[in-house]
Design a protein around this nucleic acid. Structure first.
Lengths: 172, 172
DNA sequence: CTGAGACCTGCGGATTTCGCAGCAGTCCGC
DNA sequence: GCGGACTGCTGCGAAATCCGCAGGTCTCAG
């Protein structure tokens, strides 16, 4: 009736989450299904999730706790920054000479920087900035980022309109 | 003892959330405080939140429900895409001739596209793509995006390493 | 064979959620 | 000034959920 994900766990995937060589835990189908449930509604009761994935309430609870402890997922409220009073956002492409990782670390430490990723292509790093107003944004980009030793150049893309933002990884 | 956010709501901010002219609801300090609580832990009990912000359990519950209904926030599980099996990600900068909004809409409809924003600067649109492997990524960029009528050019930045990703807007 | 470890189930008791009735303050129009 | 509509908060009791813990099963290693 209700789609059971698995029943006879025939070897191989007991140990629902286990370290693989690169350090990221491997997830089995059931944990994935649990995550999907929580991506639809982070407050869905464990019993309801259990019914959906074919597990007892307690088992779901233990798995969720483990996923949280391991840092595989987190359950949080996400908002539209505009609504919460941050009126200027920008993506900044950065070119670095020398240690890219080091610059990335420095960006990570800035509270206005929401997102940092090292990339291949004509930028070494992309960083998303969330600010209260133009002055604040200008300050962060010009004073704090461009002055980092090793930053060769930056290019800014000020956000005009956010069209889509989902958190539905694994739900398709 | 426990930091009350407000007590005498002296006019002005009854109507905790109200439409301002641009359509985005205005949030008062208490709702902001509630959001902060839920950004730390999306499953925190209403009573605990109430204690923190100085409201009854029922009041917090009503406010949270309203914030969800209005779409101001959503409570969801967020994960590291890599852990869930999406091994290739990229940011794509796009230049458009003609109706930018239209292209943005088209991108929004693609399930692999996680994030779409219209920008000022040398790209008209930035879109984040989440894929399972290289083939999938190539397919989305070359076949689906570049073939959209009006797309003049694209530039891709394949993700090498995600360094930071927070959901703490309003928490600083 | 035996012990350790991972994972699941079942079950009470504590806690939380939920729905609702009641109350207070504001903003109308009359 | 005074109802009436509206919004938001509180306080409750009932229902549902969460939580901890004591087993049980399976697998692997020695």
């Amino acid at each position: 009736m209700h789609s059971e994900v698995v029943a006879s766990r025939s070897a191989e995937q007991r140990d629902s989450t286990r370290e693989s060589r690169n350090g990221t835990p491997h997830l089995d189908a059931v944990s994935l299904a649990i995550i999907e449930q929580l991506q639809e509604d982070g407050r869905r009761p464990y019993a309801a999730i259990g019914k959906a994935v074919g597990l007892s309430e307690a088992a779901v609870r233990q798995r969720v706790q483990k996923l949280l402890d391991q840092g595989v997922m987190q359950i949080v409220a996400v908002t539209d920054p505009l609504t919460v009073g941050f009126r200027r956002q920008a993506m900044v492409g950065i070119n670095v000479e020398g240690d890219v990782e080091k610059i990335a670390e420095a960006l990570t430490d800035m509270s206005e920087v929401e997102y940092v990723v090292m990339t291949a292509g004509s930028f070494d790093i992309l960083a998303e900035i969330v600010c209260e107003d133009d002055d604040h944004l200008l300050d962060v980009i010009n004073k704090r980022i461009r002055s980092l030793p090793g930053v060769r150049s930056t290019e800014s893309f000020v956000y005009l309109k956010l069209k889509k933002q989902t958190y539905m990884w694994g739900t398709r």
